[in-house]
Design a protein around this nucleic acid. Structure first.
Length: 553
RNA sequence: GCCCCAGUAGCUCAGAGGAUAGAGCAGCGGUUUCCUAAACCGUUGGCCGCAGGUUCAACUCCUGCCUGGGGUACCA
């Protein structure tokens, strides 16, 4: 049983024995934030004292008096401040944690709270109109790490990319290529401003010329240009994602919703329920019925649906495919799209609580002091590939996942290029590499890692600090997964790396604290076990981020 | 107008009812015959946007305001 749960039981019992009343929720065990306040802390006395009309400190002392004493498990119990009960973990607890990490290896930190729930994470979902930008990059990494986190928490995850290759955007794309093709032949006219300006359009046009020769520029050949562009761009997108370490299980084409009648089915369903009506030549969704501020067009007077209708059909299909948890990851610019969609789904009888929408804020790109505006159509964007050319996939991933998704992400390109060596990702990776080096060194020196090292020898402050931090990893994974907060992982890993660097540094200052030493082999073996446990945690954590854990740097 | 997100150190950001608010970078000063100095130590730097409220306790919750970003389409 985790030590927190054990303490909670003991506290509840002590509270009862002390003559206070408290339900099971009255006791919360938290990690102490500051040194000198023990390792774990409980503030239950504050609430209890109020009901019992006594000082929190007196209540805490009374409760503490009924706590069992087991110095191996809990070295110290003290009432501090106004009434906190602080616990200092004992050597047996720390040793047990290290043993557990070594036993579980790559499984350490994983749990089965998700119970195999069929879960879908939809992200990126960029239409194939151009290369992925840095904005897509943030979403791609968030989606992938959320997926990995959910898997670590026992979900069965399907990663899905939804795209539309049949809309207006794509026609403009095809037309852009056709015009560039004509231009390359010297037959070009004005290139409209609202068409795709990027250089990649010229590349595709050149490919068209190679394939079809010079006489293929007629407007009726638009489908050819569109298809060619789609193929070329999608191939690039997949390559970029692959490079980032992301692979989708399903690419879902919006067009299939039309082909299989799922679009019409939604209209019919809404009409049946009185939630769709005709007006001004368009079909409207009665969103006001669901409490939204205005009704919305779902089929334009031109006969083309707006994005809402296929989105509803697509989400209906997600439910119908049996997903129990549906995670949608959107950029802040799509924030308005899902209330209508959810209203429609709810109206059709689907449980909206199964959908979790994660909105991430924008990435602002700055070069020096200059703000760079990103727009695929205008083509003055920095692509995800260009970013990876500069800093590599590991830094790219770390950078995008390092901050909470509700915060705007300010990316200073200059800084990323010139100071990439100071990125914290290297700090974490270096800790892993250093441990690997120590393990190699020990082997060279002929010090074997013991099967059952005497971990009670780990009594130095730096050693105990390290063991304590390693213990909290599973809780970080569980919380980050439960709350969809992937950025908690890098925060934790930086802390773990810091504590490890301290530990290793201690051996630099005091020879008796060195890991690889033949003077005291049992101590060396205990420390090697601690090193290996740390490496396991770092490797597991980096694995969840999709970042490499190098053996040497 | 209305809705969403943010405002914390010079910069970029963590922290989200508790006990002295943290990290990286930048600045200043140190540590290497020694398991990787991509490390470590010291130090400078804060009306936690403003004003009220709730609470034994507020940077954290509530209300209002200010500033910045994003929405509010028969674009997606």
């Amino acid at each position: 049983m985790p030590i927190e749960n054990e303490l909670k039981q003991q506290l509840l019992e002590a509270i009862r024995k002390a003559g206070f009343e408290a339900g099971p929720d009255a006791v919360e065990i938290a990690e102490s934030r500051q040194k000198g306040h023990g390792d774990l802390t409980c503030n239950a006395a504050f609430a209890i004292a109020r009901a019992a009309r006594m000082s929190p400190k007196a209540a805490a002392e009374k409760i503490a008096g009924f706590l069992p004493s087991d110095p191996g498990r809990i070295e110290k119990i003290e009432v501090a401040g106004n009434g906190f009960i602080n616990f200092t973990l004992g050597p047996a607890t720390l040793a047990g944690a290290v043993t557990e990490i070594l036993r579980l290896g790559t499984a350490y930190g994983r749990n089965d709270s998700g119970a195999g729930r069929k879960t879908q994470v939809e992200f990126v979902s960029a239409n194939p109109t151009g290369p992925l930008t840095i904005g897509h990059g943030r979403q791609a990494v968030i989606g992938d790490v959320v997926s990995r986190l959910l898997e670590a928490n026992g979900h069965a995850v399907t990663r899905e990319y939804y795209f539309n290759n049949a809309g207006r955007q794509m026609r403009v794309l095809g037309e852009s290529v056709r015009l560039r093709y004509l231009e390359a032949l010297g037959k070009g006219g004005d290139f409209p401003e609202d068409h795709y300006q990027g250089e990649y359009i010229r590349d595709i046009a050149a490919a068209a010329r190679d394939e079809k020769g010079d006489g293929f520029g007629a407007p009726e050949n638009l489908p050819y240009f569109q298809q060619l562009a789609e193929n070329a761009i999608f191939a690039d997108i997949r390559k970029t994602l692959e490079r980032l370490g992301i692979r989708f299980d399903v690419y879902y084409n919006e067009r299939s919703l039309y082909d299989t009648g799922k679009i019409d089915a939604v209209i019919a369903e809404l009409r049946k329920r009185g939630l769709a009506y005709d007006s001004e030549g368009a079909v409207w969704f009665r969103a006001t019925q669901a409490g939204l501020d205005q009704d919305r067009v779902i089929v334009k007077s031109t006969g083309e649906p707006t994005y809402r209708l296929p989105d509803m059909a697509y989400h209906k299909d997600k439910y119908d495919r049996g997903f129990e948890l549906i995670v949608d990851i959107f950029g802040a610019d799509h924030i308005a799209t899902y209330p209508d969609v959810m209203a429609g789904l709810t109206a059709m009888g689907y449980d909206p609580s199964r959908v979790k929408v994660l909105i991430h804020q924008f990435v602002t790109l700055t070069e020096g002091k200059e703000k760079v505006k990103m727009s695929t159509r205008k083509a003055n964007f920095v692509t995800l590939d260009e970013l990876m050319d500069e800093v590599g996939p590991d830094v790219t991933r770390y950078f995008f996942i390092n901050r909470s998704m509700s915060s705007h992400l300010n990316f200073d390109l200059t800084l990323a290029k010139t100071q990439s060596d100071e990125n914290p990702v290297y700090y974490v990776q270096y800790a892993h590499a250093r441990i690997s080096s120590i393990l190699r060194k020990a082997k060279e020196e002929g010090i074997d890692e013991a099967e059952a090292p005497d971990l009670s020898l780990l009594t130095e402050p730096a050693e105990k600090d390290l063991a304590r931090v390693l213990m909290s990893y599973p809780r970080v994974v569980a919380e980050a997964g439960r709350n969809f907060e992937p950025h908690k992982l890098p925060t934790y890993l930086e802390e773990a790396a810091t504590v490890y660097h301290h530990f290793q540094h201690a051996g630099k200052q005091d020879e008796n604290l060195r890991v690889v030493s033949k003077k005291n082999v049992p101590a060396a073996q205990a420390r090697l076990a601690l090193c290996r446990a740390t490496r396991t945690v770092l490797a597991n954590g980096l694995g969840l981020l999709g970042i490499s854990a190098p053996e040497s740097m």
